[in-house]
Amino acid sequence: MAMASRGIAQSTAAETSPKKQLTIEAIFAEGSLTGRAPETVKWGPDGSRVSFVQREDSGEHGELWYVDAATGEKKILVSEAKLAMLSPPPEKIKDEREKERLTRYHVAAYSWAPDSKHLLFDSQGQLWLYDLSNGTAVQFTSAPEPSEDPKFSPDGSHLAYVRKHNLFVRPISARDEKQITIDKDESVLNGEVDWVYAEELGVRSNYFWSPNNKDIVFLQMNENLVPTYPITDWLPTHPKVDMEKYPKAGDPNPSVRLGVVGADGGKVKWISLTKETNIYIPRFGWVRDGLLWAEVMNRAQDTMDLYFIETHSGHSRKVLTESSPDAWVNVNDDFRILKS
């Protein structure tokens, strides 16, 4: 009888609780109906824990957590107060184009250092190195221009990043920043991703460290012949116009070429792949020290060639061709190099 009474009471409470109307706004709001999912889920390099950013539904408050892979224990790595400074949520970013870039291309809020003892944060173009042992952050860059797409060398001793269309390298333990590509032309991008490659080819980075930490391979893009398109930000009281290099159908694309440069600077070694100039190089990387791979696609996007390149001699060899004359070749990230 007591159990029946309890069931009736619970049923009555459920029936009398106010029903909230489901709206279009509620369905598409941040957090939606199921709550906000974890962001930037990453394994630590030593494989002992997995980290993620967890924010409440509005996205304004969040913390960086980790879960111990062996025990399942969950703990806070970076508190809400520190995370708000080191990696502010997109909702707090006033620059609408920067907010769009972060959310549309899923830019990571943080990166693990190879030693699994430090984290790197990109706080709106300024890099911060966070020491997990004592919970302190040190500002790594302070230039007025943003430092983007940061990457640790494989051994963790250096950090590379893109600033003002050029590549820079700096030792983790010193302040001696070195610019390793030197181009003053605003239309020449070294290791930087332009609009076409980001939007149409899914490219998120255009430079990579060699396994031995000594060299960096990068894609140089020359946009001098690409038409300029005005983009107006109507949200401020006084609208702002940004000029974007944007090729419409039939317009020239950026001309591209691969280069290899030492991590300490020096002369760039340019790689010769094909006599064709109207091409894309949507994917490339290292097979091993001294040997590169690169995918080359024609403008019609119906033929893609895979090349292996010896960096010492610059000699390239075509090893595979994929074609689809009546359609197009899909660009993806399925190609993997197996250790041998």
Rank of each mutant, 00 (worst) to 15 (best):
P45Y: 05
G47E: 11
G47Q: 14
S48H: 07
S48V: 04
R49N: 02
R49Y: 00
V50W: 07
V50C: 08
S51A: 02
S51G: 08
F52G: 03
F52D: 01
F52W: 06
V53A: 02
Q54D: 00
R55P: 11
R55E: 09
R55V: 13
R55M: 10
E56I: 10
D57C: 06
D57T: 02
D57M: 08
D57H: 04
D57G: 04
S58F: 00
E60C: 07
E60V: 06
E60R: 06
E60M: 09
H61M: 10
H61D: 09
G62E: 08
G62M: 14
E63A: 14
E63L: 08
L64S: 01
W65T: 10
Y66N: 02
V67H: 05
V67D: 12
D68M: 00
D68K: 04
A69Q: 07
A69S: 12
A69T: 07
A70F: 12
A70M: 12
A70H: 13
T71W: 09
T71Q: 14
T71K: 11
T71V: 12
T71C: 13
G72H: 07
E73I: 07
K74P: 10
K74N: 11
I76H: 02
L77V: 00
L77I: 02
V78P: 04
V78R: 08
S79T: 02
A81H: 11
A81N: 14
K82P: 01
L83F: 11
A84F: 13
M85H: 14
M85V: 15
M85Y: 14
L86P: 15
P88M: 11
P88T: 15
P89I: 15
P90D: 11
E91L: 14
E91G: 15
E91F: 13
K92V: 12
K92G: 07
K92N: 13
I93F: 06
I93P: 01
I93A: 01
D95N: 10
D95R: 07
D95F: 01
E96Y: 03
R97P: 08
R97Q: 08
E98W: 02
K99P: 06
K99T: 06
K99H: 08
R101C: 06
L102Y: 08
T103V: 12
R104V: 13
R104E: 12
R104C: 10
V107K: 01
V107D: 06
V107P: 03
A108H: 02
A109F: 04
A109G: 06
A109H: 05
A109E: 00
Y110M: 04
Y110I: 01
S111I: 09
S111M: 12
P114M: 00
P114D: 07
P114R: 09
